[in-house]
Structures are given as C-alpha cells and as structure tokens.
Design a protein around this nucleic acid. Structure first.
Lengths: 238, 238
DNA sequence: GGGAAGAGGTGTACGCCGTACACCTCACGG
DNA sequence: CCGTGAGGTGTACGGCGTACACCTCTTCCC
C-alpha cells in the first residue's frame, strides 16, 4: 500500500475487472473451467460469472457459444508438439499421435468437442495435414495414406472411444461386488474385467484405456500400414 | 364409414390418442423422429407434440430424457443380428460388426448417443459380451481378447469417427472451388481429397467413411489379431 | 350398481440455457 | 471539447427438462 492507497484500492476493484478481457482471456478461462468442472458445466452464464462480468459481455469477444468452443479447441490443439522430422515415418507418426494424446489427456473434454464440431477448425486441419504429410514424406502412396488416415480414425487424436465410460472410482470392495453380479449375466465381459483387475498397479483407477491399450492398437495399425507399404499395396487389389 | 359413423368418428379423435401410448410406442416415435429430423431436434416437447400429447404425459412412460435415450439405444442395438456360430471367429466377428454397422447406418444418431451415455445399457452389454465371447470361442486368450476389444474401440459398432464430418452436399462446382482454396493451405489434405474425388462412383456423396474404408481398417485389425494369436502373443512380451 | 383406486393425461410453474437489442460509460484522437 | 467506438450492462424472449398438483377415465371389488 503506498500513497493514494484509498484511491488506488477503490479503483482496483473496478480496474481489476476492467482489464480488457480480450478474446484470449475468455478462451483460456473457458478451457480452465472445462478442465476442472467438465464441459457440461461450461455455460456462457457460468463463464461470465467466473470472469466477474455479465453474460452478454462475452459476446463482445466471441460471436456465440459455438465459436467459443472452436476457440477452445484451437488452444488445445495448439498444445500438440510439432512434427519430428526424420526419415522414419512410422515413429514420427507414433510420437506425434502420442503427443496429441498427452494434450487431450490434459483436457478430457476436448476430443468430444472436436468430434461434435460441424466443421474442423484451422488448427485441426493443420494437424491433420501435417500427419498426412508425414505419411507421404515417408513414401506411402496417396492411396494408402488415405486409407491409413481413415483406419486411424479418431485415434489420430490419441484416443479410442472408451467402451466402458470409466465408472468414477467407487471403493474397490463395491466394484468387486458389482463385478460379481455382472459375471452371471455377462460372463465374458466379467472374465476380461477380472483379468485386468489382476494387474492392478499399471492401471489408473478403473479406466482401461491406459497407455498400453492405446499403444497396442496404434502399433498394430502402424505395423499393418508398414507391411502394406512394403508390398506396394494399392486399393485396386486385395 | 358404416352405421354409427358420427359417433364412431367423434370418438375416434378421442380414441386415437387414447390408445394407451405405452413405453414402447414412445420409444419408437422417438427413434423415428431422431431418424428423420436428427437427434438434436428431439426434445420432450417436440416428441410429445408428435404424439398428440402434452409434454408431461411422456413422463408417465419414461423417467426422464436420459432414460428415453437409453431406451432408444436398446431398440437400435436390438436390430443387430445375432452372432453366427461357426469355427471361424474371424469372419464371425467381421459379420457381426458389419451387421452392427448396418443397424447404426439406419440410425445415424445412435453411435453418438451410445458413446455419450454414462453407463452402458443392457443391450449394449449383451452385444459386447457376445463379441468377446466369439473371440474367446475362437481360442484367443483372455489377454489378447481384452486388447483386441480396446483396439477395435468404437469400431465394434461399425463406425470410425469421421475426421471430416461430411459437409452436406453442395453442388460439385462449389465443392471443387473450396478444395482449390484449401489446397494452398492444406496441400496434403487436398491431395488426398482429390484422389478420392477421382473414383467418383463408389463414394456416397462427399462422405468418405464408406464401406470400403471401414472394412479396410477392420480387416487390418482382424489380421493383426489373427497373427498375434497364431504366435501365441501375450502382453508380457513385445 | 356404487365407489375406491390407480393408470394415464393435463396445466402451471420454475430455473436453467443461448442470445437479440437497446442502452450506458469512458478513454482517446480530432 | 466533443464525437466516437470499444467494452460492459440490463432486460427480455423463446426454448429446454421437469416438479407438482390436478383431472378423468377404466377397472374391479363389494
């Protein structure tokens, strides 16, 4: 507190919120809120409140909620590492996809938003374009690259859709009981779930899409692409 | 029109809507509406109107909207053919998944609803359980089956997430122009899109996830599973 | 036959949501 | 000094899901 403290303080309350509140601040606040409260808790109203501002104020910085979501996606996709250059397309793709995974792991809502968005944003296109470029740079044909991208599907984002949406961790006892009940009706699911529960350590909570699962599938596909590439595969034949 | 026509007619208006309107009729109407107007056009209010009933009437048959969606999923998943039995797990899975694809193709909203639902419905569990059962019946280890299911991911439903949400068909001239514009900024995407446009015939509209794309990826994965199975792969090693 | 019971349909109301529109405020350049 | 325009406000509308009290039949038992 220095001279003119009173005046400064008085102004501060006004000033603090008067700090321009540009588009970027809005987007970052939105990302933060979605990160910690989930995407469904993000409304224009709640976001405005968090920024100490009336809802309509946001519309001076984003056209509407759709554009807000697009902006958030841009931010998240911007966190993905740039492509590694090198002769080895296989590991370049691998690294890139795993980097995407890390980014989207930090913002669990992001994949769903990306996928639900009607039109891909520029950052999304940039990312896809550069992944494709890596395939092409590695010598894969346009044809094979095209199909490879489709085969990867949403996996280019580092995720495969969870089959079981990861029930938020009840205490383990309860979970075991639920499993017991399921075993009668869904024996095969239970068998697999049991086996998984065995490992224990390596699994985060009850989620099953851990790093290993993802890399298993990714490598299976990359192996497949490599094999087809070696054989000069083209969609004309088998 | 026969005797007592007037009375019958008078009653008919009342009667027609008085037809009990059970849970099943509600669900079927909801599916029909979602099929033809899209899932986002399905609100309790609009559905009620279509059934000639006040919104709150629906709540006598479904607990809330979530349960409505669950019920719709049950209906759709029920359309998937039962598993073919036979010694060949590979083609049994293939058929089953392609059947799921056909069902979900008839109800394009369904995959998104399945995935967004917090807890899988019984029909969903039945389906997954029986797919797993087919793997196991084919001799694949619990371990490999587990990873295979993850690798399939949402592909067990016959779909991979579209990377490009299929812009609704503008006239081809316009589309070509847009492509031209994109080529500058996203050369690799453009290259692939061009190549695809070449084939023409086999592609439905501008959508790219046609049958071929899907089967390409599916077979790549199934081949991979088969190969690992033959080698007695287990997650302990490479 | 009369009346309780309960299933099915109604009407009103609340609190959320996104956002259109008119307004205010105030720093700044002419 | 004043106009202007960027940034923030307040009010309002139409849509949503749904709680709650109510009405109206059908059915079934006495």
């Amino acid at each position: 507190m220095r001279t003119m403290a009173k005046q400064a303080d008085a102004q501060q309350a006004a000033t603090e919120r008067r700090k321009p509140l540009n588009r970027d601040r809005v987007l970052r606040a939105a990302v933060a809120r979605a990160d910690q409260s989930g995407i469904e808790a993000l409304s224009m109203r709640s976001l405005a409140q968090e920024l100490g501002v009336v809802p309509m104020a946001l519309y001076k910085h984003v056209a509407n909620k759709e554009q807000l979501l697009d902006g958030m996606v841009e931010l998240v996709v911007g966190e993905i590492d740039p492509p590694a250059d090198g002769p080895d397309w296989r590991s370049a793709i691998r690294e890139r996809v795993l980097s995407a995974r890390r980014a989207l792991l930090r913002h669990p809502w992001a994949l769903r938003v990306i996928e639900s968005r009607g039109t891909p944003t520029p950052a999304v296109l940039d990312y896809l374009d550069s992944v494709i470029g890596t395939f092409r740079g590695g010598g894969l044909s346009v044809d094979l690259t095209h199909h490879a991208m489709h085969a990867l599907g949403s996996r280019v984002w580092g995720f495969t859709q969870e089959l079981f949406p990861a029930s938020p961790g009840d205490e383990p006892g309860e979970q075991a009981a639920a499993l017991q009940a399921m075993a009668a009706r869904y024996p095969h699911i239970a068998e697999i779930a049991m086996a998984r529960a065995h490992d224990g350590a390596s699994v985060v909570g009850s989620g099953c899409d851990d790093q290993f699962e993802f890399e298993f599938a990714l490598d299976l596909l990359l192996d497949g692409f490599a094999r087809l590439h070696e054989r000069g595969w083209s969609s004309g034949q088998a």
